[in-house]
Amino acid sequence: MKPFLPVTGILLVGLSTSIVAADLELEAPGIAVPILVSLPDNHDPAKSWPAVFSYHGFNGRPNTRSTRAHTGARDWIVVGMSYTQPGKYHLEPEDIAAELKAFRHIRDELARTQGLDLKRVYASGYSKGGWMTDTLLQAEPGFAGGAILMGGHIPSPLSKPPPISKDTEVFIGIGRWDPNYIPSLKALVHYRGLGLTTSFEAWPELGHDFPSEGSPGLREWFTLQNGGKPDDAALEKEVGEILKLPPAEAWIALADFKERPFCNIEASEWPDKISAAQKDLEKDPQVAREAQIRSSHRQLLGREVKMRTLEDLRRIDAGYMKLSAISEGSPQAKDIVHDHRRILAVLKQANATEVPRPKPSPITPAPPKDDRNIPGNPLVR
């Protein structure tokens, strides 16, 4: 498989200062720069069209290019949105209300003039825009779905957030070494916990960047949202290329492949086919070892997503020390080392900020242990 490559000029993640050409420029209340609208090649305003509102990254400008590259040239209206709050992202209820006002203004204008289908409105965002997408999904019940890219999940600050429809579908894409990787896993746990169909794609050895060749999973996700079907011939070819890799690498690639949106539609045969191929590869003891390493690693990540106390953190650190020892020489070792370093950094910060407890006097019992919060832990929101 071709590796994911980082973007060389940051346009795809929305950090460019240039404005991408669009078919329409609209104004929204509270936003100083024009909103850009890219209409599909087959556009007819008398017909009904799905639309995706694409939010750029920190210090960026509205653009439609990267999202359009994933929807394809036809069928979708792509809106390059911006923010009422440029720069640092605030999550106070009044800030969310201002963003919703701007979004609804553009949505309703396009529904009135360009055939936007109010039942097929999606949000998508890169970096800061990924966090924005998470916020919108929790604050606006009318979205059919959202793509959280290079971002993650923060619980809504609204006192009474509206319920999310079970039909809402979510895609999460993140660099495997992105600092937002754990928050993105929290998004996965949150939306799947609500019963929503949620796809997850991690881009190997990539930090806070978007793949220069784009996201295969995101293209598939947009295809499925518009009623398209998987290209089984292309999937067969891709699996064939994977199986040419060394057995251990092939097993790992198949595990990631099985997460793709095309492999997880209702009644799909792909999960069973991939599982069968993996079991065949696991007859090799080296591959069986890789399967065990992956399972142990996923358990540690799951514990990290849910950790709440300093003791939790120390136990995860101990787990990584054991896993690092047994995974030496594994293709998965780089990710394990990276994740352990993240835990060590958080542990160092937590230990530095922990308030020392007074020593018990010889005639009084020791005070009860209270590890409920990890001071300064950036993973606990």
Results as ranks from 00 to 15, higher is better:
210 F>N: 05
185 L>S: 11
263 C>Q: 00
260 R>T: 04
125 G>A: 11
59 N>Q: 10
123 A>K: 05
269 E>C: 06
11 L>W: 02
123 A>S: 07
1 M>Q: 13
145 G>K: 04
11 L>M: 01
136 L>T: 06
359 K>M: 11
352 A>L: 10
38 S>M: 12
201 E>T: 00
367 P>W: 10
347 L>S: 06
291 A>V: 02
106 I>A: 02
153 H>I: 04
288 A>D: 10
363 I>E: 14
247 P>D: 13
339 D>H: 06
344 L>I: 00
346 V>A: 03
353 T>G: 01
252 I>V: 14
226 N>T: 11
276 A>I: 07
236 E>N: 12
128 K>Y: 11
196 L>P: 05
250 A>H: 08
209 D>W: 08
197 T>I: 02
276 A>C: 09
112 R>D: 09
359 K>T: 14
240 G>I: 13
181 Y>T: 01
52 V>L: 01
12 L>Y: 00
140 E>L: 06
118 L>P: 00
116 L>Y: 12
231 D>Y: 11
154 I>H: 07
324 S>R: 05
1 M>W: 09
121 V>W: 01
137 L>V: 15
238 E>D: 12
174 I>R: 00
222 F>V: 01
146 G>R: 01
197 T>V: 02
263 C>V: 02
379 L>E: 08
17 T>N: 10
301 L>D: 03
44 D>P: 11
58 F>Q: 13
284 D>E: 04
134 D>H: 13
329 G>A: 08
66 S>T: 15
73 A>E: 15
37 V>T: 04
216 P>W: 00
113 T>E: 14
178 D>K: 02
261 P>Y: 06
229 K>E: 05
274 I>V: 15
36 L>W: 10
364 T>P: 05
70 H>I: 02
226 N>C: 14
314 R>D: 05
292 Q>G: 10
338 H>A: 14
257 F>L: 15
270 W>I: 14
116 L>T: 11
268 S>C: 01
29 P>I: 04
71 T>K: 14
205 E>N: 04
371 D>E: 03
270 W>E: 10
112 R>C: 11
331 P>L: 03
10 I>L: 06
33 V>F: 05
28 A>M: 09
41 D>F: 04
82 S>V: 06
351 N>A: 10
45 P>E: 06
18 S>H: 05
87 G>N: 07
296 S>Q: 15
7 V>R: 02
177 W>D: 13
68 R>I: 12
315 R>H: 08
192 R>Q: 07
12 L>W: 00
135 T>Y: 12
191 Y>D: 07
64 T>F: 14
292 Q>A: 13
4 F>D: 11
218 L>Y: 03
308 R>Y: 04
34 P>V: 13
290 E>F: 09
335 D>N: 11
305 V>T: 07
202 A>F: 01
186 K>W: 10
333 A>R: 09
146 G>D: 07
329 G>Y: 06
331 P>A: 07
115 G>V: 01
328 E>H: 08
62 P>L: 14
312 D>P: 01
